[in-house]
Amino acid sequence: MRTNRIWSWLFVALAIAYFALPLIGTFEFSLKMRRAAYSLDAYAVVLGDPRFQQTFMYSVLMALATIAVGVLLVVPTAYWVRLKLPHWRPFMEFMTLLPLVIPPIVIVFGYIRLYNTSSWLPLTGSAMGTNVLLMFGYVVLALPYMYRAVDTGLRAIDVATLTEAAQSLGAGWVTILARVILPNVAVAVLSGAFLTFAIVIGEFVMAALLSRPAFGPYMQLLGANRAYEPAALAVIAFLITWGCMALIQVVSRFAPKPPEQLH
């Protein structure tokens, strides 16, 4: 018992050191821009850089668009599969896991081949078209998380009976999705949304290869050319990701309670 305790503490301490030391080191380094004293100078430089503001805003907008399109795509699909095509679920699970297996670089080269300026749909021909292409790439990257979150949310409600109850009260598909299904999976959708946000803000490969002014390439550029600023930027990026995770925790407290369970 006693030795057990010691070993578990030792492992916890090792894990903390493994995860925390680089962070602490980075954070400590980011404060050292001014000689001989800790300061937030590096942060001031980064936050004051107009390119930081531009790329960050660009990625935030991309993230919001990705979330909107992802929700519109995933919620009806997951709902329909649960309601009408339950035997398709293993197939859907496999499909939505593919983005974890296929590297983004493969996906983006595929896009460039399919949608280049001499193709039937020359999306890469204009900035807006390339933005749309990048956004769809992000939707694909976020798919494993979004689909799983929504599907888990749907499992908590009796999809079939609620649908029939709404139908017998005169509701069509759009009403059912908007007023019955979506509100009841809102918390799941939100946690999927925060994960998507974190992924899009940090994404580098797709944005760089499609040469869009996103936050990921900016971080890389800064990292290659400066000393203290990249450390500050890394800490900022960490805070954003952690903020998203914390928000997931917060919203899941507001999950609607299921009514008295049967059986």
Partner: peptide, 20 residues
């Protein structure tokens, strides 16, 4: 006719109230 065009009320064993 589709169920939402019939104007027929239905009560289910599992109540099926909208939880939200």
């Amino acid at each position: 006719l589709r169920p939402n065009q019939r104007n027929i009320g239905m009560v289910f064993q599992a109540y099926a109230l909208f939880p939200n």
